[in-house]
């Protein structure tokens, strides 16, 4: 096995072990979407009527509609959690150890990203399992089809988190990111309402939702759960991933990026 694969395996195992030892993190990641599903969706079920829009071929309940959005929400929060731990690691020093390994920095960052995404996929499947027991049953093959979609959407969201980690100076600033990134990204998307519903209240909001890459991640997952590929969503998600990963690699580059400026006393 090459040096690259050794490093990849080591980082994946380390993240998996951390995931296993931090059970609270796993539970917290599940509680959030379950509250949305069981409390929020139950309340909105009566208020919101949903027409038949692709990929659905019949009328669906609101709980069914928001399942893909909640899957993406798990990945979004996981990506931000990974970014937070990256900032923490950098402040506390363990990130230094990783960055002094004799490997290209882009590969090390990619490994960290992939490890975080795999953890988020486990969380999504746990959530889908609980949703199944709650009565929300999706097509059986949808659970298989959604795997690559989760991988791609997770990589995109992870790359955004990585980029944020490269720009945030201190751990304390992360709360601001939570307010100014996570909530607008989540609420201004198709996670909770379809675009046509949004257009009824504001054309501008509808357009913002349509442009939001998170909407495309949600739609990619939604279509995959019904064994369909949404090429437009895939294209936008892949493009966003490439842009943010490039920015993150630039940010962590010791010669060009933001790391050197961070060192200012």
């Amino acid at each position: 096995m090459s040096l690259y694969l050794h490093a990849l395996a080591a980082i994946l195992i380390r993240e998996a072990l951390r995931f296993v030892t931090q059970r609270e993190r796993f539970l917290a990641a599940l509680v959030r979407p379950l509250v949305w599903l069981i409390v929020f969706a139950a309340g909105f079920r009566a208020a919101l009527g949903l027409s038949i829009t692709p990929p659905y071929q019949t009328y669906i309940t609101y709980e069914v509609y928001i399942i893909p959005g909640l899957c993406a929400m798990i990945q979004l929060f996981n990506a931000m959690q990974s970014a937070l731990s990256l900032v923490y690691d950098r402040e506390m020093g363990s990130m230094r150890l990783l960055l002094t390994a004799p490997l290209p920095r882009w590969w090390l960052l990619f490994c960290k990203l992939l490890a975080g995404v795999l953890v988020s996929i486990l969380q999504v499947y746990a959530f889908l399992g609980i949703a199944y027991l709650y009565g929300i049953k999706l097509p059986p093959m949808g659970y298989v089809w959604v795997l690559p979609a989760l991988l791609v959407s997770g990589m995109m969201l992870g790359a955004v988190g990585l980029f944020l980690a490269s720009t945030i100076r201190q751990l304390e600033n992360f709360a601001g990111v939570m307010n100014f990134v996570i909530f607008p990204v989540f609420f201004l998307s198709t996670a909770l309402y379809p675009l046509w519903r949004m257009a009824e209240s504001s054309r501008l909001l509808r357009d913002i939702c349509a442009w939001n890459p998170f909407s495309h991640a949600v739609e990619l997952i939604r279509f995959a759960l019904y064994m369909r590929l949404n090429p437009e969503a895939l294209g936008w998600v892949a493009l966003t991933f490439a842009v943010f990963l490039t920015l993150a690699i630039w940010g962590f580059d010791p010669a060009r990026g933001i790391m050197t400026r961070k060192a200012s006393p």
């Binding site: 080591a10 072990l17 020093g93 363990s94 150890l97």
Partner: peptide, 22 residues
Amino acid sequence: QMTLDLDLSVARNLAYFGALHG
């Protein structure tokens, strides 16, 4: 600054670093 992973065992910390060096 200390750069150990406190949640991992001594042996795991060493194995992790060893793998980063191939």
